[in-house]
Amino acid sequence: MNKIVVVITIGILAIVAIVYFTLDFPFNMDRGDFTEEYKIEERWDLPNRLEEISGMDFVDEDRMAAVQDEEGIIFIYNLSSKEIEQEIEFGKSGDYEGLAIVGKDAFVMRSDGVLFEIQNYLSDKPLVTQHETFIKAKHNAEGLCADLKNNRLLVAVKDRDPVNNDTKGIYAFDLETKQLQEKPVFAIQLDDEIFTNVKTKNKLRVMMPSEVNIHPETGEIYVLDAKNPKLLILTPTGETKKVYLLKEDKFYQPEGIAFRKNGSLFISNEGHSDPANILKVELQ
């Protein structure tokens, strides 16, 4: 009997150790006290229907297109009226993580690397096409944005990189060939000195991109991390420039980034004890 108890005890301790070292617990990062280098200018508390907003992009100055984690629907949310104006179905239930608008078309990224192209997405009968990529569920694609200057989309992986375990890659989907290029256009080095204050049990947790977008005026690349809330800024050529640590009481789970044409920054947060929200943020 004692041997059985010992075996069970060892098994339980092993499971606890595996969970501790592999799962995305917030205590994996030693954040400490830090000064908030940003100001929240406006806040929109979202309706329950948008409790898990995971990707967004501007339709125009007032309207935001957004997707949720589990529904194959694009929601059109009006920032002025604070209401959902339209719902556009494009697929079955799934883990949808990123959204990008290119003219009259919308693109939605599923976490397993399948990209949905919704042509004439605001029309009564949008045409939906699926594009397979080499990104798989284990890589967990979460970030998606339009890079119109280069006629491509940018795709960021959250978990294990398909090419290099020492980096988190940002890949380009060519809008002409409709193919995802196998070599990343940007690679975030997980041992970069900019992450000196980020202490984790697993190096893959140093940066876990939940969204990516391009500043319309500077061309800088903004990469969001929802698990250990922070915002990384890369230069237009991909060098690390600045990292902003985000207070969890204001950014519980930041999942989406969108810019107005004038460069105003908007960040969405999934709901928790408080409603999901969209924040207009000024970086300092």
Rank of each mutant, 00 (worst) to 15 (best):
R63H: 10
M56T: 13
D105F: 05
I73E: 12
I8H: 01
D30I: 13
G219S: 01
I188Y: 03
D192A: 05
P216A: 04
D24C: 05
D57M: 06
I8G: 02
S54C: 11
C145W: 06
K3M: 14
V198K: 13
N151A: 10
D57A: 12
R43T: 15
S111P: 03
A258K: 02
H215Q: 03
V206M: 11
F134V: 12
P275F: 09
L154S: 05
K247V: 06
D69E: 04
L190M: 12
R152P: 08
V198G: 10
L148C: 06
Y20T: 12
E248C: 00
V6W: 15
K39S: 14
G263V: 14
T129G: 04
I233E: 05
L180V: 13
L122D: 01
P47D: 11
V102Q: 06
V185K: 06
K104R: 11
N48S: 13
E51T: 09
I84W: 10
M207Y: 09
Q181G: 00
M64L: 15
I74A: 08
I18D: 05
N120F: 08
S268K: 09
P236A: 03
R260M: 14
H215C: 03
S123H: 03
K138I: 15
V59E: 04
V102K: 05
E117K: 05
A141H: 07
V212D: 08
S210F: 11
G91P: 00
L231N: 02
T218I: 09
K138S: 12
S93W: 03
L204A: 10
L154I: 12
I4H: 10
H131E: 10
G113I: 06
P184K: 00
K183Q: 06
A258F: 10
E85W: 11
K199R: 15
Y121S: 00
I278D: 07
E282P: 00
V5I: 15
S210G: 15
P229C: 03
A14I: 12
K203T: 15
A66P: 07
Q119I: 14
N213M: 08
G113T: 02
V59W: 03
N28Y: 09
G263W: 14
V16L: 14
V7C: 11
E282R: 00
E87D: 07
I10L: 15
D45P: 02
L283Y: 06
P209D: 11
S111R: 02
N228W: 13
D124A: 12
Y77Q: 11
N262V: 09
R160P: 03
I278L: 15
P216Q: 03
R152V: 07
M56Y: 13
T235W: 07
G256P: 11
L190R: 09
I8R: 01
L46W: 12
K183A: 10
S80Y: 11
V59L: 11
E182I: 05
P162Y: 13
V7H: 05
L234H: 00
Y121E: 03
V5C: 08
N28Q: 13
E239P: 00
L279Q: 02
Y244V: 06
D112Y: 02
F58G: 04
L127Y: 10
I74H: 06
E132Y: 07
H131W: 14
G219I: 07
I118E: 08
N151K: 08
D174G: 00
F134H: 14
D124P: 01
D112E: 11
E87Y: 10
N78Y: 12
A156F: 08
T235M: 02
E36Q: 10
G263P: 08
E132C: 03
S123E: 09
K178W: 09
E61V: 09
L99D: 08
